[in-house]
């Protein structure tokens, strides 16, 4: 469960302070599917980074269960990211020199799995997203939809408690968008992880039982 209390995030930009989030109070229960919408620059990505333990708040606290992500050291945050949180990015963010299988394996590398175990789990994850026949392809040899499926396999292979998706369909056509969202939703239903998706796309947002809107650094329910 995420508990955000009075979270503010400011950045120094060209000698002036920019407030990305301002006094955000928010609770997200375990297993929820939450869509976050809002205009560009409203603070969506900043919120996602704080939830994903990628950044620390300037003030206030961001708790994932009992762990205060605002005050933990880099090493602890890296461990939480490795064990608890899966990411899906708008630009897929695959390592271009690694095959689909190896890209999925990168998520298991910090968890200490043996080579065979790591490989078996990764193959299984890729088969589950429908890419069992593409495991040895480089990202450049895959379509956008296929690359995002690899990214989803990479995010889910470690069976995280939280899946954070930043515009996961932003670079895809409508048909592929629906396929990807169907896949993510199915996985969410099957595994019961907390699924937070940032999107501009109302069609994607409508799939979420709970929708939040961020504007000028403040969060409101829709």
């Amino acid at each position: 469960m995420y508990t955000l209390s009075g979270v503010t995030k400011t950045y120094d930009q060209s000698k002036r302070k920019v407030t990305a989030l301002s006094g955000v109070d928010l609770v997200i229960e375990n297993g929820e599917l939450v869509a976050i919408q809002g205009p560009t620059g409203g603070g969506k990505s900043t919120l996602l980074q704080l939830l994903g333990a990628l950044d620390r708040s300037s003030s206030g606290s961001v708790k994932l269960d009992d762990a205060d992500l605002s005050s933990l050291g880099d090493g602890k945050l890296a461990t939480i990211r490795a064990q608890e949180i899966g990411f899906v990015f708008q630009g897929f963010n695959l390592i271009p020199t690694l095959t689909a299988l190896e890209n999925v394996e990168t998520a298991l590398a910090p968890l200490g799995f043996g080579t065979t175990d790591r490989r078996d789990r990764s193959v299984e994850a890729l088969e589950k997203v429908g890419l069992g026949d593409r495991i040895h392809h480089l990202p450049s040899e895959l379509s956008g939809g296929q690359q995002q499926r690899v990214a989803i396999a990479r995010a889910l292979v470690k069976q995280p408690r939280v899946l954070l998706a930043d515009e996961p369909t932003g670079n895809l056509d409508e048909q592929t968008r629906d396929e990807i969202m169907d896949l993510l939703e199915a996985e969410w239903r099957e595994r019961g992880f907390t699924f937070i998706v940032v999107t501009h796309d109302s069609a994607v947002a409508k799939r979420a039982p709970r929708r939040l809107r961020i504007k000028n650094g403040t969060v409101s329910e829709r």
């Binding site: 890296a78 990211r81 490795a82 899966g86 990411f87 910090p110």
Partner: peptide, 13 residues
């Protein structure tokens, strides 16, 4: 972005 991604998925410094 590549190293940022690896850090995001839990790779330590």
């Amino acid at each position: 972005r590549e190293f940022g991604t690896l850090k995001a998925i839990g790779w330590s410094n």
